[in-house]
């Protein structure tokens, strides 16, 4: 972002303050935002906390008011092995995807940095295309690519000598997650690659030249110079990737819609959806939603504090 130095920005703000003391003006300016955030996020958040202490059973579906049960929903939720299966799968999926994405993203960024203008432009355009694709459009294309009957994936693998004729990728959880990983990594790598590449271009040429003159091998240059210098951007990008890969609702839901069994492929988002919208068990769905929110806020803490430093 551009760009006043913090000191100058503050001086500017103070000069406004000095000239005109209208302490209510900023609050007035914030009013619409605060109002809509309270309505669309604040109220649901409070409702969710309250609801997670209520029991929604069969009787409630027939109009009986829900019953206060304290922490019973949480106890029941985390006593259920199905919950732990979903949580475990989500965390594993998230970490594996984030790791693969960051490693590939760094490799692509290094590649962008190492090649000439024309091939770099080609690579960047391809990455931008994948990045720009709307999630749902990407999902339809990938589902078509992995179509059991006429998908190109099966055709290519069969042509390569493996028999994948009419192979259904979505039937088995492991191959379901493999497809999901391919898709999520494909759509996430460009962001990492562009961010890290931007970081790489900031490394001064003198430093790299000096290292080369002193006889540092490419390997040494990568681990001793490049990596420490792009560490800040790498950390932010990795953190964002972990947070984003926890929320892969659209991708998983679309793959399930294309014919996968839901119970064995649910991740947190789709499981909450099934509990809440499918089974109308709002108490349990709310309890699990709270868990997801707490997890996200904990993960976001570092990122948010980093951005706050930017602000002051």
């Amino acid at each position: 972002m551009t760009v006043l130095s913090p000191a100058r920005e503050q001086a500017a703000a103070e000069s406004v303050l000095r000239r005109r003391r209208r302490p209510f003006a900023p609050y007035l300016l914030l009013l619409p935002t605060v109002a809509i955030l309270l309505l669309a996020l604040g109220y649901p958040l409070v409702w969710q906390f309250w609801t997670s202490t209520q029991k929604f059973g069969l009787a409630q579906q027939f109009g009986r008011p829900p019953q206060f049960v304290g922490m019973a929903n949480y106890v029941q939720l985390f006593a259920d092995p199905q919950t732990w299966a979903v949580v475990g799968r989500s965390i594993a999926f998230c970490l594996i995807n984030a790791a693969i994405t960051v490693v590939l993203g760094v490799l692509v960024a290094l590649l962008m940095n190492a090649i000439g203008t024309i091939s770099r432009l080609v690579l960047q355009v391809a990455m931008l295309l994948a990045w720009a694709m709307p999630v749902i459009a990407s999902m339809t294309v990938w589902i078509w690519l992995f179509d059991w009957h006429r998908g190109v994936a099966n055709w290519l693998l069969t042509a390569a000598g493996l028999d994948f004729t009419n192979h259904n990728w979505l039937e088995q959880p492991l191959s379901f997650y493999f497809v999901a990983t391919v898709i999520v990594v494909w759509m996430s790598v460009p962001f990492v690659a562009f961010s890290v590449y931007a970081g790489l271009t900031q490394i001064s040429e003198e430093v790299m030249e000096a290292a080369a003159l002193d006889g540092a091998s490419p390997r040494q240059r990568f681990f001793a110079i490049i990596l420490p210098m792009v560490r800040p951007v790498l950390m932010i990008v990795t953190l964002l990737q972990v947070i984003w890969d926890l929320r892969v609702f659209a991708q998983i839901k679309m793959l399930q819609d294309a014919g996968a069994p839901t119970a064995s492929t649910d991740l947190l988002g789709t499981y909450i959806y099934r509990l809440g919208v499918g089974a109308s068990d709002f108490g349990m769905a709310s309890a699990l939603s709270i868990f997801v929110l707490v997890l996200t806020v904990a993960l976001s803490l570092f990122y948010v504090l980093h951005l706050m430093k930017e602000d002051s």
């Binding site: 649901p44 609702f249 509990l275 809440g276 996200t296």
Partner: peptide
Amino acid sequence: MLPAEGLFIAQYKL
């Protein structure tokens, strides 16, 4: 940073 997945049931009820 809040994920839609953590709130959509409550937003649906709202």
